[in-house]
């Protein structure tokens, strides 16, 4: 099995603060991992480290076959990160934003239109500057960038936050599609009942590392079991 992410006692610093204090984590290609945990547990830092944005200063960190401790820039083009702050230019429209992001990676722009359609961004919305969009629309646009780029590793930081029911359903199907096409997905969430059903596996982070791992649950019954197990453990998941 190919590993998309392989971390061993990985430490990453945010300034002088150990955002990751020794993460052990493996994510296989085609696997969906949900990362739960309270604020400040290191979820966002984990995603940013996977994307090669935050340097890993000790331990092992290999993402998509690239050793991040040697060169963390190589992997960037191949991962897709949906961050808290969508990477959109306020003055550009949805269409222009997605087109720029796709062209920047050197890909063709033929997938831009379908990607916007997929996220329900059609008609006038495409021509609206990002500054005038709602938070949900901005997130949809940011997701459209990922869809158009088709990364090998999806890193979704709280993909459900600020989205309506319709968009949440889209997120769910996007995750499934990505996984079935062989990409790995790591998503964080504060809402276990939304994240766990999507995941093959659940990791609970605390204190900058993975404190707990569970096989996850696609499907209602499995989800229920994991949620119950996690609550019995008295693990702080949200």
């Amino acid at each position: 099995m190919d590993l998309a992410v392989h971390f061993r006692t990985a430490v990453a610093l945010a300034g002088r603060f150990p955002a990751l204090s020794g993460v052990d984590l493996d994510v296989a290609a085609g696997e969906v991992l949900a990362v739960l945990g309270p604020n400040g547990a290191g979820k966002t830092s984990l995603l940013r480290a996977c994307a090669g944005l935050v340097p890993v200063t000790s331990g092992e960190a290999v993402v998509l076959g690239c050793d991040l401790r040697k060169d963390r820039t190589l992997v960037r083009r191949r991962v897709g990160l949906l961050g808290h702050a969508p990477s959109l230019y306020d003055e550009l429209t949805a269409l222009e934003n997605v087109r720029f992001a796709v062209r920047a990676t050197g890909a063709g722009t033929d997938r831009v239109g379908p990607a916007l359609d997929r996220l329900g961004l059609a008609g006038r919305l495409r021509r609206t500057p990002a500054a005038r969009m709602s938070a949900g629309q901005r997130r949809r646009t940011a997701l459209a960038v990922l869809v158009a780029r088709g990364p090998e590793l999806w890193l979704l930081d709280e993909p459900h936050a600020g989205l309506d029911a319709d968009a949440r359903a889209i997120v769910g199907s996007l995750v499934e599609e990505a996984a079935s096409s062989g990409a790995a997905v790591v998503l964080t969430s504060h809402e276990p009942d939304l994240a766990v059903p999507l995941a093959d596996r659940v990791a609970v982070m605390s204190g900058g590392r993975v404190a707990e791992e569970r096989a996850g649950g696609r499907g209602a019954a499995a989800t229920e079991r994991v949620l119950v197990a996690l609550s019995q453990d008295d693990v702080d998941v949200a």
């Binding site: 150990p18 204090s21 020794g22 609970v204 982070m205 605390s206 204190g207 900058g208 590392r209 993975v210 404190a211 707990e212 453990d233 008295d234 693990v235 702080d236």
Partner: peptide, 12 residues
């Protein structure tokens, strides 16, 4: 920070 993670894991 490492220890912070341990307390949660040990409780589980």
């Amino acid at each position: 920070r490492w220890a912070e993670g341990a307390t949660v894991a040990d409780a589980a």
